[in-house]
Simulated scan of single mutants.
Amino acid sequence: MTTPDTLRDTRIPLAHGSGALPAVGFGTLIPDPLATRQAVKAALETGFRHLDGAERYRNETAVGDGMQDAFRAGTVRREDVFVTTKLWNTNHRPERVKPALEASLRRLQLDEIDCYLIHTPFAFQPGDEQDPRDARGQVIYDPAVTLVETWHAMERLVDDGLSRAIGLSDITLEKLREIVAAARIKPAVVQVESHPYLPEWELLEFCRTHGIVLQAFAPLGHGLEPKLLDDAVITAIAQRVLKTPAQVALAWAVQRGTAFLTTSTKPPRIRENFDISALPEDAMQEMRDRITTNVRFNSVVTTGVPGFIPGTR
């Protein structure tokens, strides 16, 4: 009798929060609300137990509707789903942090969130305009608040029982060190772009040392050039283990101790991204030794302006 592969069911206990993060996560950066609702429902039916959203995606209501569809259908219970959302750049001032989360909870139809992330370390001019620009089209930043001040406001959300854990997204190692040094409640999760072309080994080691889960977005390279899924090392391993290149890249992410997020509106692709199996150790070593391409696809870490969000205005 064969032992079932449990890689896709991996949960990583949070050292600085309650609960455990499912390593295989579903991202909800989907522009169309109806497609979002259907994709969330399909992801939960497939077996995904972590949903990642954000105020900035402008579709939290649809994510909440998709979850409620699944709850009513008996597909899954609320307590079995780990839900993350994010504080947007225009809400970094401490007095805006709690109202921002409360608004997200109303849209998501939840009483509490499992993890709340600061979407980027950059504070934008506060207000209702999510992408404030000056007359020259330049982003208007907010010099009146520091990331540490925002973090302390995030800590109070845990005290108030609104979020079970807190973390950061689109952060550099330098900025993360600053927050870890100043934090009363340490970050539980750090979400950054990471894939075989951007393994972030130094950041991962720092996270391991401090009990922080590193979660990868764009784990498949987001379909941009150079195409990760066409890489010769990855495609050769895929042929050897009878999996797709995407499944190889995603298995690599979990086996090295990180979590990941994938996004799709297509049920077959959603199922493919969930159906991962452990790679042989020699394949893991081969990916570390033989993949030499190094590229970052998203410049958000230098500007605070997300590179993958389609324009909707």
Score class of each variant (00 low, 15 high):
residue 259 A to D: 01
residue 29 L to W: 05
residue 266 K to W: 07
residue 108 L to R: 08
residue 198 L to G: 04
residue 52 D to P: 07
residue 289 D to N: 14
residue 212 I to K: 00
residue 288 R to L: 12
residue 106 R to W: 05
residue 246 A to G: 10
residue 25 G to W: 00
residue 73 A to H: 10
residue 88 W to D: 01
residue 132 P to K: 14
residue 272 E to T: 01
residue 205 E to G: 07
residue 77 R to Q: 15
residue 12 I to L: 15
residue 308 F to L: 14
residue 53 G to T: 08
residue 101 L to M: 10
residue 111 D to S: 15
residue 276 I to Q: 00
residue 290 R to K: 15
residue 215 Q to R: 03
residue 202 E to R: 06
residue 230 D to V: 08
residue 75 T to F: 08
residue 49 R to K: 11
residue 89 N to H: 08
residue 169 S to I: 01
residue 143 P to S: 13
residue 279 L to C: 10
residue 299 S to W: 04
residue 159 D to V: 12
residue 195 H to P: 12
residue 285 Q to N: 14
residue 213 V to E: 01
residue 38 Q to F: 06
residue 30 I to Y: 06
residue 134 D to M: 03
residue 85 T to L: 14
residue 112 E to F: 14
residue 231 D to I: 11
residue 250 L to H: 00
residue 36 T to M: 09
residue 93 R to M: 12
residue 309 I to E: 00
residue 53 G to Q: 13
residue 151 W to G: 01
residue 100 A to G: 07
residue 98 K to R: 15
residue 112 E to K: 14
residue 109 Q to C: 05
residue 156 R to V: 04
residue 138 Q to C: 05
residue 103 A to M: 09
residue 112 E to G: 09
residue 209 T to V: 02
residue 60 E to D: 11
residue 140 I to T: 12
residue 213 V to L: 04
residue 252 W to S: 02
